[in-house]
Design a protein around this nucleic acid. Structure first.
Lengths: 222, 222
DNA sequence: GGAAGTATGTGACTAAGTCACAAAGCCGGA
DNA sequence: TCCGGCTTTGTGACTTAGTCACATACTTCC
């Protein structure tokens, strides 16, 4: 129980749950582990429980018939698979694919327990709906980006995002292309231009940022 | 009250609500009317209540800085503004814009009542989450289309959708371009090609379908 | 009938995606 | 250590999509 009391602290939105609700949550949830690379949900693999991620990272993406991919969002430690849950509750098939990017630990809440928590607790509702709206807002942003933004701007943005403030990014061009839903050749050509300008140094599987302000300036153009 | 009892029948998912829940719903909701063209939500104009559309049609769209638009989805009579509501409950700003396409009548449920209904009724939760997952599924489909589909295929698809089974569509090329998030010139050129093939006849503000099977064949190429 | 406003067509150009293939880097085994 | 196979990256040639500028055509209404 003390171990369980620990995990709940990872979720800011759940800290204020009343004790009886915490009790229901604890009794009916389980901590699960999955190895890196496992497919958590996908078409024909409907979600069965609400997941709260304790550790690791989950990538949610769509794959086209021609094999091109686009990353819709990531679920990180301390977050929940909010949209999946909507599909779970609406009994709809989940049309995207969720892949564990690292080994992960998560709390699994069965559908019936999830419903009970929703019914009982204002705080839990708030937690769930806030997660929803964050994801939906983010999806809207992605649609806007794909439809209206230039690829060089999106790429500058993505490199800065992947760098986490450091100057080195370890990723292949194909992986970055998949993040953005474009073709590898396009990434290669834009990188060539960025290198020509002295903003980056690109080697196999690796990008070094040499002029962060320039990238930030370009990224902010949208 | 009999008038109110009528509107609830328009929503298949609400028919089985228990009487006490119906009572709460009736006491705390109001039927509102808005003229065609009114902006219902938008950035800086946060939703204040959950809307159930009785009559008319609402277009939810995004507008880029350069003025290009894209339609995300429509809310029709008998449906709810599900995504908006998530933002309402999550207290996040709604990043898209909802416009009444026709004069509309809708039932407005205040946030606090909405929460009470969610807490009390399994059927109401089911109704809300089903609407939610339908919208999210649809957003995923749009992202896939924008990112991976050819414009001629998307355009064929859209014309068939706008035709509602008839052979005439009344719409300007600019309106169709906005639906698809592309530029008017692109629509004009693809129409030129469709006309060359004898599939369409295009006049000012009007499209006549002359070869529906051909359009369907192209649209189904996905 | 003409003016103003709206809608459509088109050329020239840039950006992005596709296809085919070459070249370079990496890794493991002989 | 060197070689072969695999992965990653680069590039030319081409198609598709979006942008900009402007011409032309249709409508409406005075």
């Amino acid at each position: 129980m003390s171990q369980e009391a620990e995990w709940i602290d990872q979720f800011a939105g759940l800290k204020r749950l009343p004790p009886d609700v915490v009790d229901i949550l604890m009794r009916n949830s389980a901590v699960v582990s999955l190895p890196s690379g496992s497919r958590i949900y996908g078409p024909g693999q409907a979600p069965k429980s609400y997941l709260l991620l304790l550790d690791g990272s989950v990538r949610v993406q769509q794959i086209s018939e021609t094999g091109r991919e686009i990353v819709l969002y990531r679920v990180s430690a301390g977050e929940s698979c909010a949209l999946t849950t909507a599909c779970l509750m609406g009994y709809e098939d989940y049309p995207a694919e969720a892949i564990a990017e690292t080994d992960i630990h998560a709390v699994a809440i069965p559908r019936t327990t999830f419903e009970e928590l929703i019914a009982r607790s204002h705080e839990f509702r708030r937690f769930v709906f806030t997660a929803f709206s964050t994801r939906v807002t983010n999806l809207f942003r992605i649609i806007e980006e794909i439809a209206f933004s230039r690829m060089d701007i999106r790429l500058a943005h993505k490199i800065l995002e992947l760098s986490h403030g450091a100057d080195d990014v370890t990723s292949t061009q194909q992986q970055i292309a998949s993040e953005l839903g474009t073709a590898r050749e396009v990434v290669s050509r834009i990188f060539a231009e960025f290198q020509r300008r002295g903003w980056l140094a690109v080697t196999r599987g690796h990008i070094k940022i040499n002029n962060r302000p320039a990238l930030e300036r370009l990224a902010s153009e949208h």
